[in-house]
Design a binder for these strands. Structure first.
Lengths: 129, 129
DNA sequence: CTTGGTGCAAATGTTTTGCATAAGC
DNA sequence: GCTTATGCAAAACATTTGCACCAAG
């Protein structure tokens, strides 16, 4: 699954994730590039998103359904608004806090990733009835 | 979606989640009860799991695919082993830590749920090649 | 040239839905 | 009885795969 060749498709898909920014799903990326590149297939989008993630160029947000992809690769937290469905980035460093806490509790498993999704209602939707 | 009637199916499904304990998926629950109650359908299992969650009797772990259901309803953290696939409960109170941190940062969105999934390799799998 | 990547279509896995019937209250 | 819940089958999604062909190195 790791990439051995540079292809036009991979570059276009990577650029799309960077342009879209808002945690696009595979479908979002596909629709976005489909206007300009109608010959690129959805399965190629999936395969390249996975391959880019493998190479550390983007991040898979596998705790969301459908899965989304993030151009921002540092560990960070997401907030999902149950009203409008928007996914917001939170740059509060919860990962660090959690890892410290694990250490304090002499945690016996090897942690390689921290996925945090907060649910709630965003400030824009809070006002609405 | 909230329950208005008590049915035999709902009771059986609730009991199954409590017996299975290990974060069963809808399919797991279905297979478990199917031996004794072959007439209960998979869609009834889904509908009742959602309804039980709505009533606060069980908890949906919607950050996992397939979705899983937890008999333990308090907020807690899950650890997923990438080797054996097991989901472990962590009773370290990260939720509290996170909510405190949000307050400290005068967070402007309303948080109603905290979903944390740690990825890694569990202590039993760590030793294996 | 060789092998990995692509496009297409079809398969898979999970969840949801429409509808006629059954069963709580 | 009135409605909600069930069972079945089919639809709706999201994702993955087989395979013949294309193209990067």
């Amino acid at each position: 699954m790791e990439s051995k060749r540079q292809t036009m498709q991979k570059q276009i898909i990577f650029d799309a994730v960077n342009s879209l920014k808002n945690h696009p799903s595979a479908e979002d990326v596909y629709r976005y590039i489909h206007k300009k590149y109608p010959q690129i297939s959805l399965s190629t989008v999936y395969r390249n998103l996975y391959s880019l993630a493998q190479d550390g160029k983007i991040k898979r947000l596998s705790t969301l359904t459908p899965e989304r992809f993030d151009h921002f690769t540092d560990e960070h937290t997401h907030f999902r608004c149950n009203r409008c469905g928007e996914i917001l980035d939170l740059f509060i460093d919860l990962t660090q806090i959690i890892l410290e806490q694990m250490e304090k509790d002499s945690f016996e498993h090897k942690v390689s990733g921290v996925n945090i999704v907060l649910d709630g209602v965003c400030k824009d939707c809070k006002g609405l009835k």
